[in-house]
Simulated assay, not measured.
Amino acid sequence: MDEALHERVRDVVAAIPEGRVATYGDIAALAGAPTPRLVGRVLREDGGDLPWHRVLRATGKPADHLGGEQLARLADEGVPARDGRVELGRYRWDPR
């Protein structure tokens, strides 16, 4: 992967404010990534120091393997989940 793209993905994720969420697709679009899967890859390999918990699936659901921790961190920031899903219409970050 292109190092510049990698850093753009990291920069966009780092910019998500507390109390807001974005989808993998949102991050991909803002960073110019060809696919949301690339965002997941960056977070998996190099996202430990980022607010990774603020990035959700397009359905508002967390990653399967981190769902409990992800939703707990979001709840601590004032972002509740209902039935394991965050209401994107209310909590989605719009950087524009």
Rank of each mutant, 00 (worst) to 15 (best):
M1W: 11
M1P: 04
D2W: 12
E3M: 07
A4G: 02
H6C: 12
H6R: 08
E7V: 13
R10F: 04
R10P: 09
R10M: 07
R10A: 08
D11P: 13
V12S: 00
V13S: 00
A14S: 13
A14V: 10
A14G: 12
A15I: 12
A15W: 05
P17K: 10
P17D: 10
E18G: 06
G19Y: 09
R20W: 14
V21A: 15
V21L: 14
G25D: 05
D26F: 02
I27S: 05
A28S: 03
A29F: 15
A29G: 11
A29H: 11
A29N: 12
L30I: 12
A31D: 03
G32K: 09
A33K: 06
A33H: 02
P34Q: 11
P34F: 15
P34R: 06
T35S: 11
T35M: 08
R37Q: 11
R37F: 08
R37T: 04
R37I: 09
L38M: 10
V39W: 05
V39G: 11
G40K: 03
R41G: 12
R41H: 07
V42H: 01
L43Y: 00
L43H: 02
G47C: 00
G48K: 12
D49I: 13
L50K: 02
P51C: 06
P51E: 07
W52Y: 14
W52Q: 12
H53K: 08
H53E: 02
R54V: 10
R54C: 08
R54N: 10
V55K: 12
L56F: 09
L56Y: 02
R57K: 12
R57G: 13
R57Q: 04
R57S: 10
A58D: 14
G60K: 03
K61I: 15
P62L: 11
P62K: 10
D64N: 11
D64P: 12
D64K: 07
G67Q: 04
G68A: 11
E69P: 13
Q70P: 05
A72S: 15
A72N: 13
R73S: 14
L74W: 01
L74D: 01
A75Q: 10
A75F: 05
A75W: 06
D76E: 14
D76T: 14
E77T: 09
G78R: 05
V79Q: 00
V79Y: 02
A81M: 07
A81T: 09
R82Q: 15
R82A: 08
D83G: 15
D83W: 07
G84D: 06
G84V: 10
R85M: 14
R85V: 14
R85W: 09
R85S: 12
V86I: 10
V86A: 06
E87H: 07
L88W: 00
L88E: 03
Y91A: 13
Y91P: 02
W93H: 10
D94Q: 13
P95G: 04
P95M: 04
P95K: 03
R96M: 09
